[in-house]
Computed example of a mutant assay.
Amino acid sequence: MAQHIRLIATAAMGLESVVATEVKQLGYEVQVDNGKVIFDAPISAIPRCNLWLRTADRIKLVVGEFRATTFDELFEGTKALPWEDYISEEGQFPVAGKSVKSTLYSVPDCQKIVKKAIAERLKRKYGMASKMPETGSLYKVEVSILKDTALLTIDTSGVGLHKRGYRVGQGEAPLKETMAAALLLLTNWRADYPLIDPFCGSGTIPIEAALIGQNIAPGFNREFASEDWGLIRSSYWDDAFQEAEDLANYDQKLEIIGSDIDHKMVQIADSNSKEAGLGELITWKQMQVSDLTIRQDNGYIIGNPPYGQRIGDQEAVQKIYQQLGAVMKNHPSWSVYILTAYEAFEKFYGQKATKKRKLFNGFIKTDYYQYFGKKTGERR
């Protein structure tokens, strides 16, 4: 097969530019589309992107793309693609699918046709008379049909990239690790600035901040579906993990605090940080926002507070926002970044945001309120 392949890094709505920046930093040229970042790269990019991309949901390998308005066109177009270049003789290849604004709208039928076409191609190439054994490595195929154009991909990640491997506990509505990383990357926080999350919950934002601060690859503590694929040399994985080890800055000092009013969540956050190997880097405290004490200049508040979506919670949420605004009013050198779906946040915080950015936290439409601090003196 060709030494270069086409990859897609999928992204949550509103985070495409953040994912694109990360891919560029790995050295690849990108095209940005709705919900995805497309780029051509060598095969060695599969391990590197899975290990390093903090805000992407998955890395998909593009097998081919073609127009299909009939089931025959879908079958023949799929069968014409070089599946044997990717899927091993014993490989498992379940097919998922979706169809948007297309003539072929029955997703189950499209899945069956793609599955049959791949099987026929592989049987012919591998010289098999009976059906494929599918006892080996996993190659999760997706057929995505948009406006009568079929895109065939294989998922290289396995479990979504937000699953870092450190979460041993969580609350009712945990913030995805990829979203937490995006909230951090959308600021100009750096490792030599103090950072506080006063609504830490299970600790996702402080933990992701520590990973970023010490330049630790977010995928260092997990496995990927493509690790045992024949098309990726084991040396590519070895090199990617070695690169991650070489670039990590374990000596970087950090001043990161996570606090929450719920002592159980603080305990969970502490357990999660220890599972990530970051137990000594983050300070966890049980306290309410009004007790927040700030002693340095030029720091950052980055948080995902309660949204007050249930009517009975709104007064409590308004009070939290007021308390935060009252505390931060006395610290103009600090930057404040708050993600919430509560539309009257600025009113209760007591100040209009310098900038707002629309983001989706899962399926919840939110705003990322950004208050830029007036820095004093030099960095510590």
Rank of each mutant, 00 (worst) to 15 (best):
K116N: 08
S99A: 15
E280R: 12
G373P: 11
Q111K: 08
K98I: 02
L339I: 08
I212N: 01
G325I: 03
T376E: 09
L138T: 11
I118D: 11
Q318G: 11
A209S: 06
A210R: 10
L281P: 00
V32D: 00
K356P: 10
G258F: 05
F348S: 03
G303F: 02
L247D: 15
L53R: 02
A316Q: 14
G160Q: 07
T366A: 14
A269T: 12
K365W: 04
N221W: 12
L186M: 15
M179W: 10
I205M: 04
E73T: 12
Y349V: 09
R6M: 01
L183V: 01
T21L: 08
T78R: 07
K356T: 15
G299R: 06
A225S: 15
F75Y: 15
D72V: 12
Y368R: 09
V336N: 00
E16I: 09
V30F: 06
P198Y: 04
T376H: 06
A244W: 04
P305D: 10
K374E: 14
C49P: 05
Y193D: 14
G160K: 07
A276N: 05
E243T: 04
T135S: 05
L183T: 01
M328L: 12
G97N: 06
T366S: 15
I196H: 05
I113N: 00
P305F: 04
N304W: 03
Y139M: 13
N221L: 15
T55N: 00
Y371L: 11
G299L: 10
R164Q: 06
Q288F: 03
D260N: 10
P306Q: 11
L151T: 15
K60L: 15
L195P: 07
E223S: 15
K264V: 01
D297V: 00
G308T: 08
R379V: 12
S271E: 13
I8G: 06
L138C: 07
Y307C: 07
S17T: 10
G77R: 00
A344P: 03
R6A: 10
L195C: 08
S333N: 13
M132F: 05
A11L: 00
G312M: 01
D197I: 09
Q92E: 14
E172N: 02
K365Y: 02
A248C: 13
H4Q: 14
T354K: 05
A248W: 05
Y371A: 09
C200V: 04
Q214H: 09
S235D: 13
E245S: 10
S259V: 08
L53N: 02
K285M: 00
L281F: 12
I261Y: 09
A119P: 09
N188V: 03
W52I: 06
A248Y: 02
Q314H: 04
S88P: 00
H4F: 13
E346N: 01
